[in-house]
């Protein structure tokens, strides 16, 4: 069996990737990790530096990652990585025709990340989805509520330790109870 655990990498180019170089020049020690895989630079920062890095990537005239593609969450519980939760941002640059990735990791008991809705209004629903499925809250979000699962749920389904219920369960829809509630007027 070949060793499958190494991260797949492109063969290293003779000179450093320009995006990597520019960001490292500006952020230096604040970058916890920086690498390029499949032509996509990945930057890992602390949550305090998230907005600074994202806006730098967007506003720098050489980089111009003006488009936010995607925000998603990930639970590293089964991989044993800490901090447990990650929030992954993908930015796209028309100029460089590349995508870049920012990763912010937070602990379970302090799962709060600053919101990007001030910079990109389109981040709104993406962050609500991360909150809904993982329980990570976004500081300053205008509407931090669930978006996909029913509003009254309190569980976060995409966590690795989420126990799917066996039916019937307390938050599955029960028509008789619902009709009684409707008749009661609640």
């Amino acid at each position: 069996m070949t060793d499958q655990t190494a991260v797949a990498e492109q063969p290293s180019a003779p000179e450093k990737d320009p995006v990597l170089a520019r960001v490292e020049e500006r952020f230096g020690e604040r970058l916890l990790e920086a690498q390029v895989t499949f032509d996509q630079p990945t930057f890992v920062v602390k949550r305090e530096d998230l907005i600074a890095l994202a806006t730098f990537l967007r506003d720098d005239p050489e980089l111009q990652f003006i488009r936010l593609s995607d925000i998603c969450g990930i639970d590293y519980l089964n991989l044993g990585k800490t901090p447990r939760f990650g929030v992954i941002y993908h930015l796209h640059s028309f100029k460089l025709n590349r995508w870049a990735r920012i990763r912010v990791q937070v602990d379970e008991d302090d799962a709060v990340v600053p919101t990007l809705t001030g910079e990109w209004p389109g981040a709104n629903w993406f962050e609500r989805e991360v909150y809904d499925l993982f329980g990570i809250e976004f500081n300053g979000h205008p509407d931090m509520t669930r978006i996909l699962t029913p509003d009254e749920w309190e569980v976060h389904p995409l966590r690795k330790d989420f126990q799917p219920p066996k039916e019937p369960h307390e938050w599955s829809f029960n028509p008789e109870q619902w009709q009684k509630a409707v008749q009661r007027g609640s």
């Binding site: 655990t5 190494a6 991260v7 797949a8 895989t37 593609s69 995607d70 993908h90 995508w99 990735r101």
Partner: peptide, 18 residues
């Protein structure tokens, strides 16, 4: 599948499917 992460994008009829 060997360990790794990738963001793979195609142009679906609706836009960027990542």
């Amino acid at each position: 599948v060997p360990a790794g992460e990738v963001y793979s994008v195609i142009e679906s009829p609706r836009g960027e499917l990542g």
